[in-house]
Each structure stands twice: as structure tokens, then as C-alpha cells.
Nucleic acid binder design. Structure first.
Lengths: 129, 129
DNA sequence: CCCAAACATAACGTTAACGTAATGTTTATT
DNA sequence: AATAAACATTACGTTAACGTTATGTTTGGG
């Protein structure tokens, strides 16, 4: 494990573009890649995992802002009672929102189902003469 | 029921801005409000319902493009076997995507739960001396 | 040491979904 | 008829999350 992954590989392995990596780094969503003076940036295995986690959360519809609120949970523990209590509040809020979203989606799902069945019924009627 | 609702009321009752109504009308997401020559636009009861439905679908993360693919289902039936079969395909695709999203959200939910419990546990340990 | 491939930086471009003036016209009320 | 409130139209502005040149620098293999 060389653990000195360059941006080309890190982005390829995470399924994003180099531009995305730089962008995330610029907004502090991923830790800055180390470098020697003026040279290139070197990332680690953890960066890859972190990037994958980010894309996964994005698929849930979380914005990068929202992601930056929780992403650290997956990699580091906030220290101190203070921080943990604060994070806990955020988590509970997300849990609530997530539950609501799941409900909404299930509602939507059953509407879809109803429409689909209606159409199938209609087409079946047309089918056999 | 006057059924000649002006943009101010229609937007207020649907919980959106007049700008949004005009925008949706401009992209054909809602039917154009009738008008006498050069006058104002008059909308109907159905416009209100339609707008509410749109905002509801938006909360599910559907884009306006995606919404325009399915919105008509709620108000008119596509006529002809041809059209119905096509719409049915779209619906099935959405059903699949919706199921995947629900799964992803439930996954996310359980991750949240796990984190929350871990934090609560930690804080409880700190609690009683 | 040389050179192509990969990288760095800066800056302008892009899409979605409206927001926000600015200005002129309708409509309803007095 | 006057006037204020609501409406219409045009056009420029905004945010998020990058894409896309353009140009110059680093790096690794021969």
C-alpha cells in the first residue's frame, strides 16, 4: 500500500472526475492532499472511501453542505461532550427528515402502483378481442 | 365557484409565487391561463390542484422535466393503446427507481440510527459519574 | 537529459429553477 | 375619471456543482 495516490487514480477509483476532487478539496469536504512544496497532491486510501461515501450520500439528495455536516461521522469521532451533543442533534434531525422522505416516497410508490394497475387493466381489456 | 382565478390567488392558494406560476406555464407544465386578448390570465381550480401536485412531486426530488413526464396522469388519460403503453413503461421505470431510492434511504436511516445509538451510549457513560 | 503523460491553476461557461428589479398596462373601486 | 392594487413583460441576477478550455509545471520512463 503505497498510500500516495495521485489525483488521477483517486478520482478514477472513486468514480468522479479530478475536477470534482479539487472542488471538494477547495470547499473542505475532503482533507487536502499532501504535497512537497510546489508539487502535486497525494491522497490516501481514505480519500477514496470518503469520496465514495460522498457520492452515495449525494444520491440520497443531500447537498454538499448537508453532507459536510455528517461526513466526518464516518471517519472521525467528534471529541468532547459538547461536540457530540451537537452532532447528535443534527443526526436526529436527519433521522426525522429521512423518515418523512421515506413516507413520501412510499406514498408516491403506491400512487404509481395504482396508475400502473389501471393501465394494465385497460390494456388487458383491449387485448383479447 | 367563479373558476376565474387570477395569478395572485392561484399562486397564494398553491403556496408558490406568481413567478413560479408563469415559469411553469412558460415551459408547459401547467396549461396556459385563458385571457381576453391582451388582458390578464385566468386560471381554474384545477390549476391550483396541479400546482400542489407539482410541489409535492418536487419534494420527492423529481426535476420539472421528470414531473412533466408524469403529471398529466393525474389529470388526463392518455388516449390510445400506443400512448398508454408508452406511459406504462415510464411508470414502471419510475417504480423501479423509487424502490431503489427507498432502499437507499432505509440504508441511510439505519446508519443514522447506529450513529445515534453510539453517541447516546457514550453520553450515558459520561452521565452518571 | 528528454519528452509525453499527468498534474496545477486560473478563469470563464453551464444548467435548473426561479428571484428581483424596472417599466408599462389592467382592473376594481371610489 | 382618477387612482391604487394587481398584473404583464422583459431582462438581468443568483446558487450549486461542477465542465471546459487555456496555459504552464511536474513526473516517470527511456
Amino acid at each position: 500500500m503505497e498510500d500516495r495516490i495521485r489525483i488521477g487514480d483517486v478520482s478514477k477509483r472513486a468514480g468522479v472526475t479530478p475536477r470534482t476532487v479539487r472542488y471538494y478539496e477547495s470547499i473542505g469536504l475532503i482533507p487536502p492532499g499532501e504535497r512537497e512544496g510546489q508539487g502535486q497532491h497525494y491522497y490516501t486510501e481514505e480519500t477514496v472511501v470518503r469520496l465514495r461515501k460522498i457520492t452515495q450520500l449525494k444520491k440520497l439528495g443531500l447537498s454538499l453542505d448537508e453532507i459536510s455536516e455528517v461526513i466526518d461521522l464516518y471517519f472521525t469521532d467528534p471529541s468532547g461532550v459538547q461536540a457530540k451533543t451537537k452532532v447528535l442533534a443534527i443526526l436526529r434531525r436527519y433521522l426525522k427528515e429521512t423518515d418523512e422522505k421515506i413516507d413520501a416516497f412510499q406514498q408516491f410508490r403506491s400512487e404509481l402502483q395504482a396508475h400502473i394497475m389501471r393501465f394494465e387493466q385497460w390494456l388487458k381489456g383491449k387485448g383479447h378481442h
